[in-house]
């Protein structure tokens, strides 16, 4: 059930959950299971980041890029379905290991799929760094200085785009990350463009991680048997979800149901920094700045405007705000 918390990072939530429960149970998943968990986690990071890249392109009115990125994201979705049997909620994690093994033929198909995806992604990255429309709408927009990023507890790519090297995968390795070499991507532009580039590079880095994991997949079991009830205890789990650090806390009382369960999602950590990023910017830049942290919520899709001098108030929905952004930028860039 834990994986239904999020439709994009379902595997991160279950990884965090199994981490917590396995700690209380004092069991460890076999190495092969740890590697398979890592592979799914990175595939999930890729699909989540490419979804975001598409969305960011949509927010700045670059719908062509949005369509193409989403089309190529399907390669990854198909791979996830091939490995786990499902596209979104993979149900791969279980307490004590993973539910399914990866067959050799699937390994080959995954490698092939990654190859073609990587090629496409490198091309999109080139567009992201050279296309004038992208640069104009993202460079020097939504600045978050490193000091503020730390003070406001930003996490994940938002924090790394402000030049701070913090990644749970590297700082507090879980599953198989201590056995796989990888780079923590940082950029120090502190703007939306840096956030875009951080995610592009992380996608490419994830491809390398998966390749390495597939090549070094240890032999053996994929799960251990665990008892059906959990002893009394409490534990905290940390996982680097695509959007940043995810924390789960559980307190159990010796039955099959937890006494207390708390989830701190990365979007909650990133929201305060949005307020800082927006200060001094244009209203027309709000959509892309807000999208820049890759927020994961449905209920905050509107805002209130107050014009003090005229004592006027009105509400814009997300769609109206987006339209204003496009029109305003078109007016700005066309000569009078």
């Amino acid at each position: 059930m834990i994986e239904r918390i999020c439709g994009l990072c379902s595997h991160s939530h279950t990884t965090c959950y199994t981490q917590v429960i396995e700690e209380i149970l004092d069991v460890e998943a076999p190495p092969r299971a740890e590697f398979i968990r890592t592979i799914i986690a990175e595939l999930e990071r890729i699909h989540s980041h490419s979804l975001w890249i598409g969305l960011a392109a949509h927010e700045i009115g670059f719908d062509t890029l949005f369509m193409y990125v989403w089309r190529d994201r399907e390669i990854i979705m198909d791979l996830l379905e091939l490995i786990s049997g499902k596209r979104i909620h993979h149900s791969m994690n279980t307490i004590g290991g993973v539910d399914r093994d990866i067959a050799p033929e699937i390994i080959n198909r995954t490698k092939k799929g990654l190859e073609s995806f990587k090629e496409r992604m490198e091309y999109y990255r080139k567009i992201g760094t050279t296309e004038r429309t992208v640069l104009k709408r993202t460079a020097q927009i939504g600045i978050l200085h490193p000091g503020d990023a730390i003070a406001l507890c930003a996490v994940g790519p938002t924090l790394r785009a402000s030049g701070i090297k913090h990644d749970v995968r590297a700082d507090d390795p879980y599953i198989a990350y201590d056995e796989i070499p990888f780079n923590v991507i940082t950029y120090d532009g502190c703007d939306v463009l840096s956030r875009l580039l951080t995610r592009f590079d992380e996608v490419l880095e994830s491809v390398n991680i998966i390749r390495y994991a597939l090549d070094h997949l240890p032999e053996g079991k994929t799960r251990v048997k665990v008892r059906r009830w959990v002893p009394e205890g409490e534990a905290i789990g940390r996982v680097e979800a695509p959007r940043g650090e995810l924390i789960h806390y559980a307190k159990t009382d010796g039955t099959t149901k937890p006494n207390r369960y708390k989830v701190r999602t990365p979007t909650l950590g990133n929201l305060p920094s949005v307020c800082e990023m927006l200060i001094g910017g244009y209203i027309a830049d709000i959509p892309i700045v807000l999208a820049g942290i890759d927020p994961c919520f449905a209920c905050a899709d509107r805002m209130i405007f107050i014009e003090e001098s005229k004592d006027k108030r009105w509400v814009w929905s997300g769609e109206e705000l987006r339209r204003h952004a496009k029109e305003w930028h078109q007016k700005e860039s066309s000569p009078p």
């Binding site: 379905e81 091939l82 786990s84 049997g85 499902k86 149900s91 399914r100």
Partner: peptide
Amino acid sequence: FEKRDPTRGMR
């Protein structure tokens, strides 16, 4: 009108 073939082992 067109349907995708389900992947083998789909849940």
